[in-house]
Amino acid sequence: MYLPDFEYHMPATIQEACALLAEKGQVAKVLAGGTDLLNKMKHGLVAPAVLISLKQLEQLSNIEYEEGKGVLIGARATHNAICNSKLLQEKYLSICEAAHHMANNQIRNVGTIGGNISNAVPSADLPPILMALDASITLVGTKGERVMALEEFFVGPGKTLLAPDEIIAQIVIPDQSCTGSTYIKFGLRRSGALAVVGVAVAVTMDGNVCKDARIVLGAVAPVPMRAPKAEAMIIGKAISDDLLEEVGVCASTECKPIDDIRGSAEYRRDMVRVFTKRALRKAINEGHV
C-alpha cells in the first residue's frame, strides 16, 4: 500500500506551521505521529495535498509541571512518553494507565496525545480521563493563542472547535483537589482494540463522604460526555454499595450509545452502569490509579 503524492513541509516554529495552514487552507493537514492520518490516506479516506509536519517542534513533546498552572503535556508527547513520565506517574497514574491501555506498543511509541484529541473519535481513551481531571487545551493559530476546556472542544465524531489555522499545542491539567481518579475501558481484546465502553471518574473524598465527583463516559455518545445527573447523585453523600449502583443506573440512562460492530446500544448502556460503579469504587478506594 503506497501513499498518494503530497506536498511536505517541516516548519521550524509553531507560528510558521499555523501560517502554512492558513495559506494552504482545507487541503492541508497536520502530521504528528501519523498512526491515524497515514492509515486514512492509504485507505483514501482523506487525501490532503499538503502535510505539515510537527517533527521539528521538539518543545511540543515536553511534559512538565508549572507552578500555578499545573501539569503541562505537549501535544506531541507520545502515548508511551505519557506512560513513562515520572511526573505523571507520581501525580496522575490514572492518565499513564489510560495511555498504557491504548493500541499496542508500536503505536504508543509514535502516536501522540494531540492526535488522539484532534481526531475526536468517540471511543478515544485519553479524553475521558483528561476531562475528568478538568483539563484544558491550548490552541495556537495565526491570531495567537486561546485556551478552552477540553470538554467544550468536541463537537461530534471527528469534529472539534479547532479552527483551520490552529494547532493543538498543549494540554493543561490544573492542580487538583480530588483524591482519586481512574479510567477503565472495555475492549474486545486487551491490546489494539478500541473501547466499547470507557468510563473515567475523579472523586474528592472526605472520609466516606463524596465531596465532589466528575464522571465522563467514552464511546457511548457522539463525543466523550459528562454524566451530570449521576455526578449530582453522588456528591455530598456517604458511599455505599446501593448508592454506587444507583449512580451507575443513572449514568446508563444519561448516555446515548449506538449499535455498531463492537457492541449493541443496549449492551453498552448496561456496561456503563457496571463500569461507572467499578470506576467510582476504584478511585474512592485506591486514589489516582
Binding site: M1, Y8, M10, L31, G34, T35, L38, N39, S53, K55, N80, N105, Q106, I107, N109, V110
Partner: peptide, 13 residues
C-alpha cells in the same frame, strides 16, 4: 531503540 511500525512512518520523518 523503541519498536515502531515502519509501514506508517515516512522516510522524511
Amino acid at each position: 531503540g523503541k519498536p515502531v511500525n515502519s509501514c506508517i512512518v515516512l522516510a522524511v520523518e
